[in-house]
């Protein structure tokens, strides 16, 4: 009987090894270990054996069973792994094919620049003030120390609609309106970004419509040196930490003293290049201490309050920052132009 069991074991293991798939294996299992299988048959005949032989053969039969089971398990996991491997190989794709594009637009470069500047001043405790683009002569000129007939009105040829209503030539009327709302009580700390209009022929450097960002701080003890501090922070954040700034005296009707701010050229770091016209400096913005007349007209006591104001052109800043050579690009909206500002 032992020989018979031994032969069954060899036979079963041989068939297990030959099994091609899990179905074959299952058949082998049923054939050898099933209730009607040969080993069961062998065990059924144990009654004929002597009492001494019975436990020996019984133990041996279990041993054979276990061996076959072990082989079955081993083969099964082999076959399973092979099946998975085959499935995976069938599922293999070409990872070099292009992915599905995600639709995504981006801001206009002017918006990108304005937003960057807004965020910078918001972080310094400024708020954003807004006002109408169609303005009265009073807020656009008179409240800013530009009475009718003032020669500086010549500097800004305007789109008048009626004698008293015009497209604003600057965002400064927002300053006048904001100060007025404060009813003589400081502090005022705003920036006012927006569109402005001048009677210019559109060419590479002129646009009849463009953007401006102006800032205004009115409080007790505001100094020109504070303006320098704010502008220096702005210049370093906007154009790089190693920028130097320089203030030059200038003239604006609504500030006195008035200054223009240059930054050291970010292209050549002051050595001189085409961007800075060989001077090492780039003109960025105009600023100054708020003219006492402007404070008084808006209801502030100019003996008690002082303030500073500044104004800059996002087009100019964007042109410098991105090396754009023609202001008309901003308003033509060529999609090939717009798409370039994905990461602006």
């Amino acid at each position: 009987m032992k020989d018979r069991l031994e032969a069954l074991k060899v036979e079963a293991i041989g068939q297990i090894k030959e099994a091609q798939d899990l179905k074959d294996l299952q058949a082998v299992k049923v054939a050898y270990l099933g209730k009607k299988g040969p080993i069961t048959e062998v065990l059924k005949g144990m009654g004929k054996l002597s009492a001494e032989e019975r436990p020996v053969i019984g133990a041996y039969a279990n041993e054979v069973r276990d061996s076959i089971q072990q082989e079955l398990d081993k083969k099964q996991s082999e076959l399973e792994n092979a099946a998975i491997a085959e499935k995976l190989s069938k599922e293999t794709i070409d990872v070099s094919l292009p992915g599905r594009p995600v639709k995504k637009g981006n801001p206009h470069p002017l918006t990108a620049v304005v937003t960057e500047i807004e965020d910078l001043f918001l972080s310094m405790g400024f708020t954003i003030a807004e006002g109408p683009e169609v303005e009265t002569d009073y807020y656009n000129f008179e409240a800013l120390n530009l009475p009718k007939g003032h020669p500086a009105r010549d500097m800004q040829d305007s789109f008048f609609i009626t004698e008293d209503i015009l497209l604003r030539t600057q965002t400064s009327p927002v300053q006048a309106r904001t100060m007025e709302k404060h009813e003589g009580e400081g502090p005022v700390k705003i920036i006012s970004p927006g569109k402005v209009y001048r009677r210019d022929n559109d060419d590479a450097t002129h646009s009849h419509q463009f953007m401006q960002i102006e800032g205004l701080v009115v409080d007790q003890n505001v100094r020109l040196s504070d303006l320098k501090g704010v502008l220096e922070t702005f210049a370093k954040k906007m154009f790089g930490e190693d920028r130097k700034i320089r203030l030059r005296p200038s003239f604006f009707p609504f500030t006195e003293p008035s200054v223009e701010m240059d930054i050291s050229c970010f292209k050549c770091s002051g050595k001189g290049c085409s961007i800075c016209k060989q001077t090492g400096w780039i003109e960025i913005l105009g600023a100054g201490m708020v003219h006492p007349n402007v404070l008084e007209m808006a209801g502030f006591d100019s003996k008690k309050y002082t303030g500073f104001a500044f104004g800059m052109g996002p087009e100019r800043i964007a042109m410098l920052k991105y090396g754009i050579d023609d202001i008309r690009h901003f308003y033509a909206n060529d999609i090939r132009f717009l798409k370039q500002f994905k990461n602006a």
């Binding site: 637009g105 801001p107 206009h108 918006t111 569109k195 009849h208 419509q209 717009l338 798409k339």
Partner: peptide
């Protein structure tokens, strides 16, 4: 969508 900025006039 890409943002455009156009003239008001």
């Amino acid at each position: 969508l890409y943002q455009a900025v156009t003239y008001a006039l």
